[in-house]
Write a protein that binds this DNA or RNA. Structure first.
Lengths: 192, 192
DNA sequence: ACCAGATGAGACATCAATGTCTCATTCGAT
DNA sequence: ATCGAATGAGACATTGATGTCTCATCTGGT
């Protein structure tokens, strides 16, 4: 019993399947279960054995996304140093998860916002806290609510991910474009 | 033949149906044809008589959205006056169309972006031109490309529409939040 | 009042995706 | 090499939405 993983016999790598699914669904949110299976290099039956159904798959993707976002937050140490620099670090760390994030956000929009998942609430709170801290430190303007800044960050990350995927923005500019617009806006400022 | 409209006998108001569809689909993008029909107060058969199918309905919504956005642009006179003020006017004029716009944007993302609709291309060009003009006038920073600023504007409008619909942002703050963030960013600036 | 045309309701066939199941094959541990 | 477990491929039933059709009813113009 050397290959027991989580009490089950090992077989297909669950995480690997999830990553393949994320990669595909981020591009085409309407991809079928069969397509997901092929993208993951496994049979449809096996996919169904691992995830009871499409809903279960999406929920698993949600968990994965939340995990990775939490990890990104941790790595970015958003509670340390100047708030604007923390935002930059956060954007940088979130970049790899951006396509999955935008998929999950739109997915959540589709299915009526019945139950605000606890994980999302916690993430929202972390982002929101960051902006609030920036306001208290005098770095961020106080006429834009932390809730809106949080929404805007998600929105810009989604737009950025999609613009990159579509070739309208170079991948290397992703972090810069988002962070700069979010922090400094489009208007030319006197400083700098 | 007093009630001939566009060569067809009048009956249900096509535009009114489209508006009802827009209102519903903007909230629940997966709403069924039957739901759309009920929302419009007509029978499903009649809905099918007017729009060959779901695709046709969405395409009609697309045309409607494009029309209204063009009209918003015209009213905002985005080629007059300082670019930043033009952006403000544009955001204000676009606000009523925001939910429909965000629906169409995500819808377009779902179906593979094979052929860029001519209408969207023209709208993109108008927005893009506005930002370019601002850069040439020295109002906007030049390190953010017009293409990205255009994406960002759409993204923020979508986020704003959704945040309002979800009650996380007050409807009355919609224009201000978007325009201020887009123009000035989150960082507190020295001026003002 | 009459009539052509449009509507609404529902029956119906179709279609695509989903979920379940079977079975031969393959893989890994021993 | 052998055995048990997992896989892949495909058959199959189910489901939900779609699109078509019919027919009774209604409406607006004459």
């Amino acid at each position: 019993m050397s290959h027991l993983v989580y009490g089950r016999l090992m077989s297909v790598d669950r995480t690997q399947v999830l990553r393949a699914a994320a990669a595909l669904l981020s591009r085409r949110a309407t991809a079928t279960m069969d397509e997901v299976a092929r993208a993951a290099g496994i049979g449809r039956a096996t996919l169904h054995r691992q995830f009871a159904g499409r809903d279960a798959l999406v929920r698993a993707l949600e968990e994965l996304g939340i995990q990775e976002l939490e990890a990104a937050h941790d790595r970015a140490r958003t509670d340390e140093g100047p708030a604007d620099e923390a935002v930059r670090r956060l954007v940088a760390e979130v970049e790899p998860v951006a396509p999955l994030l935008s998929f999950l956000v739109t997915e959540n929009q589709l299915f009526e916002g019945d139950q605000q998942n606890e994980g999302w609430a916690r993430l929202d709170a972390r982002v929101s806290d960051l902006f609030r801290r920036g306001q208290e430190e005098g770095t961020f303007r106080i006429d834009l609510t932390p809730a809106w800044l949080t929404e805007a960050l998600y929105g810009l990350i989604g737009s950025g991910a999609w613009a990159v995927q579509d070739g309208r923005v170079a991948a290397k500019d992703f972090q810069y474009m988002i962070a700069e617009l979010l922090l400094g806006g489009a208007r030319r400022s006197v400083e700098k």
